[in-house]
Design a protein around this nucleic acid. Structure first.
Length: 264
DNA sequence: CGCCCACCCTGATGGC
DNA sequence: TGCCATCAGGGTGGGC
C-alpha cells in the first residue's frame, strides 16, 4: 500500500496529533520491526522528549526527536507493503498488527504493519540520518521536468522498473508507476533510451497530476476513471478507450497496461 | 548498469 | 476440513 501519497498522509497524521507533546511511554509490541536497535534504546532516546516536525523523502518518514541532546537523533519510519501510522484518541481498540505504540497525553500514535517487511530505524545524529537516505534519488513530489530528464539520461532499462527504482526517483511504487505510464500513454516495457522529449514532457506532467491528486486522498484513489480503479478486475477495460487491459509482469512486479493507448 | 533470483514476513485465496 | 501453492502496492543482496 504505502507509496509517497500514503506516507505523506502519515506525515500529516503525525504532524497534526503528535508533534510537540511529551512522549509518555513507548510500547514495543514486536521487536522485529526495530532495525539495528532494541526497545531499551528507543525508550532511552525518547525519555523526556517530544516529536519534532516530521519530513518525508520518498517513502521514508523522518521524525526528529526534540530537544536534541549532544546530537540530533531521528526516527526513520518505512511502511513496506502493509504498514501505516494510526492516531487513536484513547488506548482502546489496538490492532493485532500494531508493532510499536507511542503513548502521548492526548492519545496514541501506532505504527502498524502486518508483514514487517521493512521497519523502523534510528539515526543517532544528522550524518547517520543522511547516510540512511543517501541512496535515494530526488523526491518525486515537486520534481521538475529538467530533473526528470536528468535522472533518466543514460538509462538503458525499461521505463517501469526505472521509475520504480528508489535510487532514480524516490517515492513511486508499483501502483503509481502503472497509473502514471497509463496517463502518459507510454507502455511499461518501453526502453528509457527510446523516449523522445515529448514523452518525457507527458511523463512529467502526469507524474505531477497523479501525485497531487493521490496526496489529496492519501492514497492512489481507486476511481473507475483511473487505471487503479480497474486493475483488480479480471478483465477490466481501459477507462479511456474501452480496450481490455493487459496484465503481466514487468521488472518482477504485477503490471497492468492498455495495449492500445500505451505505445511501445 | 540491467536483469533475475532468493529472501525477508503474514495473510487471503483457490485448487485438490 | 486440511494442506499446499500462489500472490500481494516494500526493499536487500548476490550472481551473471
Amino acid at each position: 500500500m504505502p507509496e509517497l501519497p500514503d506516507v505523506e498522509g502519515f506525515r500529516r497524521v503525525l504532524a497534526r496529533h503528535a508533534v510537540g507533546a511529551p512522549v509518555r511511554a513507548v510500547a514495543v509490541l514486536d521487536n522485529q520491526v526495530l532495525r539495528g536497535f532494541g526497545p531499551e534504546r528507543l525508550r532511552e532516546v525518547l525519555r523526556g522528549r517530544r516529536f519534532g516536525e516530521p519530513w518525508r523523502h520518498g517513502k521514508w518518514l523522518v521524525v526528529p526527536i526534540i530537544p536534541p541532546g549532544a546530537e540530533q537523533s531521528s526516527l526513520l519510519l518505512h511502511f513496506g507493503m502493509t504498514g501505516e501510522l494510526v492516531w487513536a484518541d484513547d488506548d482502546g481498540g489496538r490492532h493485532r498488527h500494531d508493532r510499536v505504540v507511542f503513548v502521548l497525553p492526548e492519545g496514541e500514535l501506532r505504527y502498524r504493519d502486518m508483514r514487517k517487511l521493512t521497519g523502523v530505524r534510528l539515526a543517532g545524529n544528522a550524518a547517520e540520518c543522511r547516510s540512511l537516505l543517501a541512496d535515494l534519488g530526488p523526491d518525486a513530489l515537486g520534481l521538475t521536468r529538467g530533473e526528470l530528464a536528468r535522472v533518466l539520461a543514460g538509462r538503458r532499462g525499461r521505463i517501469k522498473p526505472t521509475l520504480a527504482d528508489q535510487a532514480v526517483v524516490a517515492g513511486l511504487g508499483n501502483l503509481l508507476v502503472d497509473e502514471i505510464l497509463w496517463r502518459a500513454r507510454i507502455a511499461p516495457q518501453r526502453s528509457v533510451a527510446d523516449l523522445e522529449p515529448g514523452d518525457v514532457t507527458r511523463l512529467h506532467r502526469q507524474l505531477g497530476t497523479v501525485l497531487r491528486r493521490s496526496i489529496e486522498a492519501a492514497r492512489v484513489p481507486p476511481r473507475p476513471s483511473w487505471l487503479t480503479g480497474r486493475r483488480d478486475e479480471p478483465s477490466g477495460s481501459c477507462p479511456r478507450c474501452g480496450t481490455t487491459l493487459s496484465h503481466g509482469r514487468v521488472g518482477g512486479r504485477g503490471t497492468v497496461w492498455c495495449p492500445r493507448c500505451q505505445h511501445r
